[in-house]
């Protein structure tokens, strides 16, 4: 089924920039192409999402594997964790750009949040099988959309141990 979807998207690719033709996306993603796809596809660090007005969004505490806070950020209903991380320069990779073909955006959620989300599909689980430091509450960041309905809109997202050296905050001052 995924394959069929991929082919459908390839065949309607004329609306999209040509270099994006090779990126079959899940349907929810395809729907955002016309408005956001361009920003998303440009290889910048930013997530191509809008930041909510301070105090109005869903609050996400990004923490490292030891539980130390990296940054607290705000995002809008329906934004995915990978895009949020990129928007706020938190170095969560997305090598395949959200097409469920790698495990580089692996994140660890709180049990309560994990339980209330829809279960991951086979394709996401296949990728999680290859993730480093997999836990019972692991997900791919690109597949998890934040919502106010879970945990009163206050989430904690932990990065797995293997990515502990990947934060871009605190750039070296000189070399």
């Amino acid at each position: 089924m995924l394959r069929g979807l991929a082919l459908d998207l390839l065949s309607v690719s004329s609306r999209r920039p040509s270099y994006l033709k090779a990126c079959p996306k899940r349907d929810t993603f395809a729907a955002t192409w016309s408005t956001r796809g361009f920003h998303r596809s440009i290889p910048t660090r930013h997530g191509g999402i809008d930041r909510p007005k301070p105090g109005t969004g869903i609050v996400i505490d990004f923490k490292d594997s030891k539980g130390t806070l990296i940054k607290t950020v705000e995002a809008n209903e329906g934004d995915d964790i990978l895009s949020i991380a990129h928007e706020y320069d938190i170095d969560l990779e997305g090598a395949c750009e959200g097409s469920i073909a790698c495990s580089t955006c692996h994140v660890i959620l709180e049990q309560e949040v994990f339980d209330q989300l829809e279960e991951p599909g086979d394709d996401e689980n296949d990728m999680l099988d290859m993730a480093f430091g997999l836990t019972e509450t692991s997900r791919l960041g690109c597949q998890v959309k934040v919502t106010k309905d879970i945990h009163d809109g206050r989430w904690e997202v932990r990065l797995p141990a293997a990515t502990r050296n990947m934060f871009v905050d605190g750039k070296r001052a000189s070399h």
Binding site: R3, A6, Y19, A22, C23, P24, S41, I42, P43, T44, A95, C96, E97, S99, I100, A101, C102
Partner: peptide, 15 residues
């Protein structure tokens, strides 16, 4: 060839 999404990493390489 039928794994085109894996090649999305080249956008980062281009950057």
């Amino acid at each position: 060839p039928d794994h085109p999404e894996v090649k999305n990493c080249t956008h980062k390489f281009d950057h």
